[in-house]
Design a binder for these strands. Structure first.
Length: 826
RNA sequence: GCCCCUUUAGCCCAAUGGCAGAGGCAGACGACUUAAAAUCGUCACAGUGUGGGUUCGAGUCCCACAAGGGGCACCA
């Protein structure tokens, strides 16, 4: 049965041999209508086609493949699709640099990655592929945009937005990291622009609360980052009368219990309120405010967020009245108050808030202590005390603790119509307009008569015009504005002259719903089929890097909830289970050309073979930890694979031997492996799973070389088990082993059997005896030994007697049949 | 400053509260070989970051601290 030419393991000829056969076999097709297997949806985060695959992709896809292939072997119809997140700036920048069309660059890279994925033996269903820059895909971005628009979830507003002067485009809040553009690290500035937004905040509560349902199935780190980002805080909105103004000003506070300690009010300098209050003051105040406003506008977030920065601000010459005690509070404008959070105005309680305290110290404002926390008085120390305590100097509320005080004071003011319970979110609406070319055109037409007019559904997609003749260089307005043939259209409503919106959508829109598009990637009837979504979605297992912990996952969750409310899906969370793999490092740091520590995937594959690289990724350690390529050994992996392969070559029994006649010890090893393997894979302990396969191979080797011999049925059973398990990590080697064992191609579809637990029953076990927790003796006993028998045996042991000496026995713990612990006095 | 994770052999990493070692790398030795490589086999190496506590028993649970990594950080 053995191929005579194959006496030595040669991974490279094995790779060449099997690729075309798999192309024919298509073992991972998930689209057969008469497939009766239960469904499972395993999804890898799709790549951006910025070049060929790199080590990071290799890790992610190796790990995703372990899971996808595992479920296939457990009898599931696994949908494991792939696509490309192919709109976005790198294509545009590359095009500008080389004078090419972004399209050509993008699709060349996709072809390259696709061929590398095939060679890497990813278990993708190649009949389910999508590319977000295809009109057939982004048409549905536009359709969804318009559906959102109908429901008020997409809207346009003018505000101060994040602006990257280098990318020459606006950025979402989420794309600004430490005041820098996440893409190019330029200092982000502010710019007042009218832009499109998705109303994520409408879902803020659900986005936060539903994280609880993911507990245990998503990494806790991601859950906490999302919670942090959404940032819900409860408190009260309190109205303050303003001298010389009819309307009161509402402030949001999480500490209504400290109201008696409010000594001034602060408003955001860039708010309308600040301007209005200043305009009612005298000339010198107005001038000072204008100066300050200019200064604030010039500063960027880097400066603003520096923690050691001194507080700045100007007095607006106006006063508010504290609703609890009638105190006159000076109103200041200061940039530590943000115009787009809460109401853009706060009551300042320096005694119990660090920020207010440093402001009070800087400008010599009074400090009134109203909570006794047992610490030194902040009015004296000038150090705010923000902890729990008892109310003082708060009139009828004195003596109350924090929670009661919050309740009581809020209720008291609410009765007078001056306050209400409120909550606020750190989360802002999602700014989706981008002033760039390579993205989905926003399907809105601007008409001087009719205003914003949606492009009628039957006119979708609004295709991108060719880049030929367009200047793609960033210049602060969309390159599409210059495509006049494309831009100028008739208004769908009145037929008059009108213009298309020339901005394109943030590419995170593309990836917010792509997991649904895989259900029918080529459909021109709908974004996705609702009935298929019921069958396949949500995604059972999502695999990808933690870099998307906030942005992508939050947006996809928002889309899912919106689609749920539109009646298009029947679930509210898109990704039931999430695995974040770590990064691949080299010598302790992320690989980069500039650091000179880049490891080329193609070179690794050429040197060690696909299987050894994949196995190394899985074996290196827990998947969520980083892998330092300097610490692992792909050549060691290759050595092991050769060892496994040779075991298959040494099997001399026929395909249909009866395993029951096999060597009991080796059968036991095989079935103990089968018992352990599944839970390890399902618990993402791939490294331990691989170690178990190695253990079984070692046991098999010993059996073959020892008394058992290669003809024993247990050897075949063991090696077949190895081949199946190994196909999760090393598909080429496993397939070749499968053939050596006399099977038709398709080890990936071979079922992983359940362990026969009856083979694992022990009737003898080693019992240990401890004295005061220290091991003193051990001996074999029957597994059904009684407690008394075991205890008697323990006291019979000379070693135990010696250990006890003449001390008195305090307690004897017996855990039959494996343990006796004798505790002595003293 | 706040929160989270990690810390086990020279290295990467295992260990339902019950004998610290499953697996690998790097080593040493042996067999095979004229020799080497490959292969096969054997072996050594830590008492689990530090200090307390709970327990009959702690790598595992609790508290504090240290080091490394990550996240958040003027959001009222």
């Amino acid at each position: 049965m053995t191929d005579q030419n194959q006496t030595e393991y040669d991974i490279f000829s094995i790779q060449e041999k099997w690729l075309p056969i798999w192309d024919e076999l298509k073992p991972f097709n998930s689209g057969n209508a008469d497939d009766s297997r239960p469904t499972k949806y395993v999804l890898d985060m799709f790549p951006y086609p910025s070049g060929d695959l790199h080590m990071g992709h290799a890790e992610a896809y190796a790990l995703g493949d372990v899971i996808a292939r595992y479920w296939v072997q457990k009898g599931f119809n696994v949908m494991h699709p792939i696509g490309w997140d192919s709109f976005g700036l790198p294509a545009e920048n590359a095009a500008i640099k080389r004078g090419l069309d972004p399209k050509g660059w993008t699709y060349d890279n996709i072809a390259q990655q696709r061929s590398s994925m095939r060679r890497y033996a990813c278990s993708f269903d190649w009949d389910r592929v999508l590319i977000t820059s295809d009109p057939i895909y982004y048409r549905w971005n536009q359709w969804l945009f318009l559906e959102f628009y109908k429901r008020g979830l997409a809207y346009r507003k003018n505000s101060n937005v994040n602006w990257c002067p280098s990318c020459q485009t606006v950025l979402a809040n989420e794309q600004v990291v430490q005041g820098l553009c996440e893409r190019c690290d330029s200092v982000v500035t502010k710019k007042a622009l009218t832009q499109w937004y998705f109303k994520v905040t409408e879902y803020a509560d659900r986005l936060l609360d539903d994280l609880d349902t993911l507990e245990g199935n998503w990494p806790s780190k991601v859950l906490s980052m999302q919670r942090n980002w959404i940032g819900r805080s409860y408190g009260a909105e309190v109205e303050f009368e303003i001298e010389g103004r009819t309307e009161p000003v509402t402030v949001f506070t999480t500490r209504p219990d400290t109201l008696f300690g409010a000594t001034f009010m602060v408003v955001a300098p860039d708010s309308d309120l600040a301007a209005e209050l200043a305009s009612g003051a005298d000339a010198s105040v107005r001038a000072a405010f204008q100066d300050y406003l200019e200064q604030v506008k010039k500063s960027n977030d880097i400066e603003r967020l520096a923690t050691d920065r001194e507080k700045t601000g100007v007095f607006l010459g106006r006063f508010a009245i504290n609703p609890v005690n009638g105190a006159r509070l000076p109103i200041w404008a200061a940039d530590y108050v943000l115009s787009d959070y809460g109401t853009g105005a706060i009551m300042a309680v320096p005694a119990h808030d660090d920020r207010d305290m440093s402001f009070a110290v800087k400008f010599d404002l009074p400090v009134v202590t109203v909570v006794d926390t047992g610490e030194d008085d902040p009015a004296v120390t000038k150090v705010a005390t923000s902890g729990e305590g008892v109310l003082i100097a708060s009139g009828e509320f004195n003596g109350l603790a924090k929670a009661e005080a919050i309740q009581a004071i809020t209720d008291h003011l609410a009765n007078a119509g001056k306050a209400k319970v409120a909550k606020n979110f750190r989360l802002r609406d999602w700014l989706i307009s981008r002033q760039r070319y390579w993205g989905t055109p926003i399907p809105i037409i601007h008409c001087d008569v009719c205003g914003e007019v949606p492009v009628p559904a039957e006119q979708l997609p609004v295709e991108l015009p060719s880049a030929a003749g367009l200047d793609l260089k960033p210049k602060g307005s969309s390159p599409l504005g210059a495509a006049s043939d494309w831009l100028n259209v008739n208004c769908p409503s009145c037929g008059g002259d009108a213009r298309r919106d020339s901005d394109t959508m943030d590419t995170f829109v593309d990836s917010s719903w792509y997991f649904l598009r895989f259900l029918s990637p080529n459909s021109t009837d709908a974004a996705f089929p609702v009935d298929e979504a019921k069958r396949w979605a949500p995604v059972d297992q999502y695999v990808g890097g933690v870099t998307h912990a906030i942005l992508h996952l939050l947006y996809a969750r928002f889309f899912t909830k919106a689609l749920h409310d539109m009646g298009l899906v029947d679930f509210e969370e898109p990704f039931t289970r999430l695995l974040n793999q770590g990064m691949v490092l080299m010598n302790g740091s992320a690989m980069s050309k500039s650091r000179g520590n880049l490891v080329a995937l193609s070179e690794q594959l050429d040197e060690h073979g696909v299987d050894a690289v994949r196995l190394t990724m899985a074996f290196a350690g827990p998947p969520e930890e980083d892998i330092d390529w300097a610490d692992v050994s792909p050549s060691g992996s290759a050595k092991f694979l050769a060892r496994a392969w040779r075991a298959a070559n040494d099997v001399t029994s026929g395909v249909d031997v009866d395993f029951k006649a096999g060597n009991p010890a080796l059968r036991k090893a095989t079935h103990s492996f089968l018992r352990d393997f599944g839970p390890l894979i399902e618990g993402f302990k791939f490294n331990v799973g691989v170690a178990k396969v190695m253990e079984l191979v070692n046991a098999t080797r010993k059996a073959i070389d020892g008394d058992v011999g290669g003809a024993d049925p247990a050897v075949r059973e063991a090696v077949q088990t190895v081949a199946k398990a190994l196909s999760l990590f090393a598909p080429y080697t496993a397939e070749d082993m499968w053939q050596l064992l006399g099977h038709a191609p398709g080890v990936a579809l071979a079922m992983l059997p359940e362990a026969d637990l009856s083979l694992l029953v022990e009737n003898q076990v080693v019992a240990i005896v401890q004295v005061d927790g220290k091991l003193r003796d051990k001996f074999e006993v029957a597994t059904d030994i009684t407690k008394d028998e075991l205890q008697a045996l323990a006291f019979d042991s000379n070693a135990v007697k010696r250990a006890i000496g003449d001390r008195e026995i305090a307690a004897v713990i017996v855990r039959e049949p494996k343990l006796v612990n004798i505790a002595t006095m003293g």
